[in-house]
Design a protein around this nucleic acid. Sequence first.
DNA 1: CTACTCTGGATAGTACAGGTATCCAACACT
DNA 2: AGTGTTGGATACCTGTACTATCCAGAGTAG
Lengths: 207, 207
Amino acid sequence: MRISGLVERTGVPLATVKYYLREGLLPPGRAVGAKLSLYGEEHVRRLALIRALRDTANLPLARVRTIVALIDEPADDLLESLGRAVAALPPAVADDRQGPYPRAEGVAREIGPAIDPGSTAMAQLEDALAAAESVGLGISAERARLYAQHLRAMAEFDIAQVPTGDRGRAIEYSVLGTAIYEPVIAAMRRLAHQDVARSARDDAGDR
Amino acid sequence: MRISGLVERTGVPLATVKYYLREGLLPPGRAVGAKLSLYGEEHVRRLALIRALRDTANLPLARVRTIVALIDEPADDLLESLGRAVAALPPAVADDRQGPYPRAEGVAREIGPAIDPGSTAMAQLEDALAAAESVGLGISAERARLYAQHLRAMAEFDIAQVPTGDRGRAIEYSVLGTAIYEPVIAAMRRLAHQDVARSARDDAGDR
DNA sequence: CTACTCTGGATAGTACAGGTATCCAACACT
DNA sequence: AGTGTTGGATACCTGTACTATCCAGAGTAG
């Protein structure tokens, strides 16, 4: 398929496709002579991925680039790849940032024993907890424990679903699952709040 | 306190404080004569809130403005305020957007019966599910059910914690809790994935 | 073979967000 | 009286993500 086909299949404007090619987000097509390149299904999929990460997961293109690079050239180790993908997700963390993370450490203990205390997600959690505290909504031990239990149960399901065998597939699945499912969970949580609040109001109204 | 005190207390640069005043994110101080205004603790808190929503929850200032407006002038109804706050949270949804939401409706049924099928969060969920599907990670019925159960349990706890009595406080708490806790949950989920994956690897290594 | 279309590649321009910097005249403190 | 701060206005700057043009060579239809 030529570049015009890519435009037709994905709905992404030509100028934007060229821009993604220039920026290295989309790999070049197979060159056929000096003035023609052909593109395949992998380019269609890649464009869908870029748009999904940009529009739905709200990632700046620089971070999308990091993530597609991880999928194209995965680290040997699944955990290593996942760690780097998480580091590419917002909110950004300074490169030289390091602990201690007084708020995050207590919460991490509720989640489980195998957490790397130096990982990016610890810094992200610390910042998120500090922000909550700064507006007067610090996390209680009770809430931390409850959230940890439920999120760990969901994580266990997620990890059990990771396809085993093909290492590349496993990495792609994990990296994408982390980024793409966060908005799903956020939206489901918002709906759950709505449901609980409306149910409570309706019960009160019935009384 | 004068404007310089505000700068000192919050660490936000003077030019930026002036910018927030211009943009109506920060209410003006109490004018004392033509060339001096005084600011209070509420201004310090408001600045912390703006920075938390901007940096941690990753909201553009236009959405921060919507949220602070909801806190300053809450709707009569808690549910109404919450709905508007959720609509201000990313990802953005077109104003004229309406159902049906084929993917979201199935998932919403797992969460509970009292969900408004026309709410913004339904559109957000639909888009997030469509994005997941477009990269080959469509949600399974099993995953939807499991996520729904855990998120509803967390939501029940959240709603139970909302301070009753003072309506303004309840709205502030709910609106902020929705926005400020999403990054906390995302970070905890990332840590839970890490913990589960590392535990599994360590078990395999011990064998 | 000619006319038209499409292509890759380069370059420039646009739109918006979110500041940052400067200038000024009117006060306030010392 | 002199110095410093303030509110207010305006201009400017940086980064992100495109969007638009232009060009010359290649393919393609009649």
